[in-house]
Every structure is written in structure tokens, then in C-alpha cells.
Design a protein around this nucleic acid. Structure first.
Lengths: 328, 328
DNA sequence: ATAAAACAATAATAAATTCTTATACTGTAT
DNA sequence: ATACAGTATAAGAATTTATTATTGTTTTAT
């Protein structure tokens, strides 16, 4: 055996956990189908390596020391993580994950939930699908509480992540169809004197994007209403107001907004990307297949429906062409 | 060797990672000070156990397969977690953690940050101290991103946590000193007609507590302002208003509020506990020592200062007596 | 109190494993 | 084609891990 900086092996931890559970070494030995002596040696070796006393032998049944309790915590984490790793490998091998935890951004959930669900039914034993803001999903993906997310954002830091663009869409101005269209950023500010601007909360990605856009144009729009959800923004506009939103956010709200139109922004154009992100290599070709499916659905179904909402801007939506994957 | 459901040992993972890093088995062998043959055997054994091909040998240098990439992710997690476990045990042994990540609830941070910092300087190599809402700290503690938190709340679910009460304080009514004191819950509702009630956001624990309290009394107070922070609530009161808060929240805001008083609630009393929570067994006697220090500081310094803010209610604050610890 | 029972530690030995050496094989480059 | 660096495999040596047998504890029953 080579010298190792690793202080123990999983086998030793397994034995240790079994002793913790039975509270006796003899019991653990029976359970594991080996002799009590072997257990005793493993535990004593573990104690020597770690330089720590794990059990208090001055009583029967033997008791865990504070160090033992601490090691137990870590041992549980390590062994379950090890088993999980092996399960993941089997899943990758068979191409059919046992449990797939998916996060999808609110503003795409109506548009993509049906094809996503259909796909997952085929390709995963079980699925959990959560809607919400991309920020929290992103953290969950990194923290391994999620396996795949559909969200907004350019593919900033790519630490071990794989990222596909599903669709690129413009930000648009949602504005009463009856009123004259503001012919520039300045006009927008003037109109804002009597027509309130409805904001996306800056806690959401889309809100931050819009805020940055307005700041770049040096526009200070007054507002009193602010929403987390596309639906909130749109419905507030109907009660009198205007907003910057996107075609998909409009679709998300359901029915068309009467007497309102979506139009290109009066200033320079702004766009956002909606992407599918997974941890690299963990799901084999499943992400690629899913991207293909979702893009197809976006082209076939979503773009069609969008013509009703944003006739002018549907043509600015871009769904990337699908190429063959790198890995066979 | 006993038969094991664990699919590999940490030693094998270490070898595997070394091969990943060098991209050649021979290089990994040199690095590890063993022969290339041994490496080859370990890898091949690992592949057989997992039923997976980890490297693509049809090229030089050999390449990671998708399965290999996946295993690499998990292997990194496992080996770092294993090393961390050993470090934790050493820390517990020596009683001086290398890095202690502490979360403290906003409403105690002024009161306790000084003695907390002094303590940590002595008892930890490095410390990270974050202020914020207990909810997120609690999750971080469970997720092992934090090691110790000072927060609000009774010790609900005790899954592997150790919990000490630092202090118990009453909820009080912050009310103009010049006006007649409301002599019952009903009076409060009448006064609310012309004096606004300032709310703690229901996202915070304290806000939820207050909301529950009012609901129990069937009081429907009108409000238009709502804050996350004790300071926000208090300063809003100064501009005209009343609120339910706690003595420590008042202290947190700094100076005394002129022409205002803190008084017992007109209805039945309500209290909250502020507690110190750690994962059980991981920090030895450090939490106990810290509790002792903090309680002492609360008695000696904080209760004194509170008499200026809430002369009537300081006597209702309770700092539990400190007993000897269970473990030597 | 004493004996019995159940458990844990240790020494010596057997079994299994993991290394090394030696050699044959494979992919890449000159 | 041949050399070269790398990889796989067989066989034996070294090391590790388990077993048996025995002794020493702690608890429980008499």
C-alpha cells in the first residue's frame, strides 16, 4: 500500500458506522459477516491513524466519544456520497437517470413545461420539476440539489458546467396601442410623467437587466409598482402603465393584453438568452437530446403563438440551429 | 476483505484523480512513488467494480470518458470531504478550530459582536462572521457552510443540533411617551385608526412571531410600512407610528428614541428566545465556553444599557444561569 | 460476593490483497 | 519501418487484512 495523506478508507468508515449502529463490535461483526477481532483491529487502526479515541471502552455497551460523534457525521456523508456516485455512473451508463431534479425559470414554464414533462417521462425514472428564479436554481445546481436548470443569463462562469442557448429574445416595450409610440428614450421619460412605469423587481435577473439598460441610457423612470412575476407586470400595465418585458414573459401571462402592443425599445436594442445548464458530463447525451427537443418545440409551437402577442417582434426571436453533439 | 456495497475505496479514487491530473498512468505512478503496473491494476479494478470504462485508451495521452469525468467530480468531492473530516477531528482534539464560520442574527449583532469577536480571536485560527436573518443561517448550518449560529427561535427540530438559550426577552410596544397608554388590545385597534402600525416583514422570524400574536388576539392592524430591519421599524416610528418590537431590537438601533417608550404589550405577554446553535459534537467544549462568555456579557453590559431604552422591561429579560457542562 | 455471560483486546497465523518485476502489447512520431 | 513512451498482463514478493485462540473487561445473574 502506498503512503497516503488520506486518513482512512471507506471500508473502515463502513465498519465504524456499523459499530455505531449496533453499539457493540461483536454485533457489527455478526452483521458484516466477519469476526469481532477484525472489527476491533479496524477500529483501533482508525483511531491510531486519526490520533483520536472514537469509543469509550470503560462501559458496556461502548459509547461514542465527541470525536466519534463527529467522525460519524462525516462518515455518513462520505458513504452516502460514495453510493450516490456509483448510482450516477450507472445512470449515465444506462442513459436513464433514476431521479432528475429540474429547475425552470418562471418566464419559460408555460412555454416549455409540456414538452419538458413529456421528455422526462421518457428519459428519467422519476423527475422533480421546480419553477422559480434562476438565481436560486443556479445555486442549487452547484450545490447538487438540482441536476438541470433552464434559466436566464449568459454563460458567465463556467466552473464545471455545460451550457446550451435555447433561445434569444429581445426586450420590448409594452405600451398602449392607442397612444402615439415614443420615438426615442427621451420621449419615454416625458410620457413617464403621467404614465407609470411598472418594474420587474431587481431581485430577479430580468429586473437587473432592465435596470442596467435604463442606467446606460441615463433614464430615470419613476415607478411605484414592482413585481417578481411577469404576470404581475403585465396585469399592472392593463390597469394603466407601461413596462419593459419580453415576448416570452407576455406568453407566460396567458391571454393577449387588449389595446396593448409589444414593440421594439425606443432606444438601442437589448436582448436576453435563455439557457439550459447542467453539471458537465453527469447526464451523458440527455442534455443534448433535451436541448434539441426544446428548441424544436420553441420553433414549432411557441414562435407561432407569439405572433399573436408581439407580431412585430416575433421575428427577432432566435432559436439556435442544432448541431451534432461532440461526443458520439 | 469483506464483501462491500461500497463500490470503491478512497485509495482507488486518489489514484484515479492522480491519473486524471497527469493524463498518463506512468506519470501518476512516478508522482505516487509506485509502479505503473500498480496504477494500471487499480484503474482496471475500479472500472470492473463500477462496470464502466473510465479512460479511452485508443489515444495517447489517454482521455477521460464521460463516465470518467463524472467519477472525477464525485472523487474530488469525496477526497476533499475526507480530508476535511480529518481536519475537523484534529480541531476538536486541540480545541482550536482552524476556520470557524459564524452567523449572527441582525438584532443581536451590535450587542454581541464585540465579545464574540474577542472570544473567536482567542479560540479559532480564523473566523468568518456574517450577520443576517436566522432562516438563511440555519440552512447554512445544516448544509455545513456555517459552523455556529446565534439566532432567534425555540429549538424546534433538533436533528443533530446542539442548542443553548442565550437570552429570553419580551415583545414590547414602542409607543409615544406623551400619549395615554392603550389599556388593552381593543384600545390598540382604535388608536391604529389614526396612528400607523409599523410592521416587521413576515419574511423575518420576528415578523412571523408578531403576526401570529396579533392573529391570536384577533387584531387586524392597518399598516403601510414594513421593514426587514429593527432600525427601519424604529426610525419609522419616530416619524409617527407605533410598533411591536423587542428591547434588543431597540438597542440595535443605537440611540434612544426621544419621546418614545417601550412598554409591556397591552394584551397577553409574548416572548422570544435567542439561542446559540451548533452541529452536535463538532466543536467540543467551545460552544459551551462561548455561551458562558456571551451570557456573562449580556448580564454585565447589555442589561445595563437596556435600562436606558426600556426601563420598565429590562427586568423581564432573562439570561439563563450557566451550569457545568456534561462532558469533562 | 462470586460465577457466568457477553464483549473487547492481543498474539500468532492464515488468507487475501496489493504491490513489483518482467515482458508483451499499443498508439504516436520520426 | 522503427523507435519511443505508454499500457496491459502474468507471476511472484511484500503487505495488508482476516481468522483462530487466548486473555482481560465489564455487566448481569445467582
Amino acid at each position: 500500500m502506498i503512503s497516503s495523506d488520506l486518513p482512512f478508507d471507506l471500508h473502515a468508515l463502513k465498519v465504524f458506522l456499523q459499530v455505531c449502529e449496533h453499539t457493540t463490535m461483536a454485533g457489527a461483526a455478526r452483521r458484516l459477516g466477519i469476526t469481532q477481532s477484525a472489527i476491533s483491529q479496524v477500529i483501533s487502526d482508525l483511531e491510531h491513524r486519526l490520533g483520536v479515541v472514537l469509543f469509550d471502552r470503560s462501559m458496556r455497551p461502548i459509547g461514542l466519544t465527541a470525536s466519534g460523534a463527529l467522525l460519524r457525521e462525516h462518515a455518513l456523508i462520505l458513504t452516502t456520497e460514495a453510493r450516490r456516485a456509483s448510482i450516477r455512473l450507472q445512470e449515465l451508463q444506462r442513459g436513464r437517470p433514476n431521479l432528475l431534479r429540474v429547475g425552470i425559470i418562471d418566464s419559460l414554464s408555460r412555454a416549455l413545461l409540456p414538452p419538458l414533462t413529456r421528455f422526462l417521462r421518457e428519459r428519467a425514472e422519476r423527475s422533480v420539476i421546480l419553477s422559480g428564479p434562476t438565481e436560486s436554481h443556479y445555486a442549487a445546481l452547484l450545490g447538487r440539489q438540482m441536476d438541470l436548470i433552464v434559466g436566464a443569463g449568459d454563460l458567465e462562469d463556467m466552473n464545471g458546467l455545460e451550457c446550451w442557448v435555447l433561445l434569444e429574445e429581445p426586450y420590448v416595450l409594452l405600451y398602449p396601442a392607442t397612444k402615439p409610440y415614443p420615438d426615442g428614450p427621451k420621449a419615454l421619460q416625458e410620457i413617464n410623467q403621467y404614465m407609470p412605469f411598472i418594474r420587474f423587481s431587481a431581485r430577479s435577473r430580468i429586473g437587473q437587466d432592465i435596470e442596467r439598460y435604463l442606467r446606460r441610457l441615463r433614464l430615470e423612470l419613476r415607478y411605484s409598482l414592482e413585481f417578481d412575476s411577469p404576470f404581475g407586470v403585465t396585469s399592472a400595465c392593463m390597469d394603466g402603465g407601461m413596462a419593459i418585458t419580453t415576448p416570452l414573459c407576455m406568453l407566460e401571462c396567458g391571454e393577449a393584453v387588449p389595446h396593448f402592443r409589444c414593440m421594439a425599445l425606443p432606444g438601442p436594442p437589448a436582448r436576453r438568452q435563455l439557457t439550459l445548464i447542467v453539471r458537465k458530463g453527469e447526464l451523458g447525451r440527455l442534455p443534448f437530446d433535451l436541448v434539441q427537443t426544446l428548441r424544436q418545440h420553441l420553433r414549432d409551437s411557441v414562435l407561432q403563438r407569439l405572433r399573436h402577442f408581439c407580431p412585430d417582434d416575433a421575428k427577432f426571436l432566435k432559436v439556435p440551429a442544432t448541431r451534432v453533439p461532440d461526443h458520439g
